[in-house]
């Protein structure tokens, strides 16, 4: 059985014929060659595969492509402005050194964007709790939290 799926990936309309068991992450990485979305644990624990579906963070290793028929998917490749500059969350991760090996970073950034978008004035404790679904095995959590706190006012446009 093959399914025809239509959806938008980073603003582009995409049509695909896939087997029903195709995971969203497999489609993004292997069919769309968007390898910024990482597969860490493949058990919905680590959050490295986090992408936005209609603006909401999900673990793409735990979602079938068929379930997001017609949706808007945003991956780490889709958040940078057209001029090639960094998204404020990326810039803050860079400025705060919110990464070590970098493997968890795309998922952390997508998760953090969702968190700040839906919870503009999150406290440090709320940011820590909000990032529970993303694991950093380098254990560099302090700088990640600092980066999110630095990016939040920039994202809500109160500080440039």
């Amino acid at each position: 059985m093959s399914l025809q799926i239509r959806l938008h990936v980073n603003g582009n309309a995409v049509t695909a014929d896939v087997s029903p068991d195709t995971l969203l992450v497999t489609f993004l990485r292997e069919h769309q060659h968007l390898t910024g979305t990482h597969v860490g644990c493949d058990t919905a624990s680590c959050g490295a595969c986090t992408v936005l579906v209609d603006g909401i963070a999900v673990k793409s290793c735990n979602v079938l492509l068929a379930q997001v028929q017609g949706c808007q998917i945003t991956t780490i490749e889709g958040i940078t402005p057209a001029d090639g500059s960094l998204h404020p969350m990326q810039a803050a991760f860079k400025a705060c050194h919110g990464l070590q090996c970098g493997f968890c970073t795309p998922g952390m950034i997508m998760s953090a964007i969702d968190l700040v978008t839906h919870h503009e004035h999150a406290s440090e404790a709320e940011i820590r709790a909000g990032l529970q679904g993303n694991l950093c095995r380098c254990t560099g959590y302090h700088n990640i939290v600092r980066a999110v706190m630095q990016a939040a006012p920039i994202m809500r446009g109160t500080q440039s």
Partner: peptide, 9 residues
């Protein structure tokens, strides 16, 4: 329940 991404789905 779980974490934010899991709660979203």
């Amino acid at each position: 329940i779980g974490d934010r991404q899991v709660r979203n789905r």
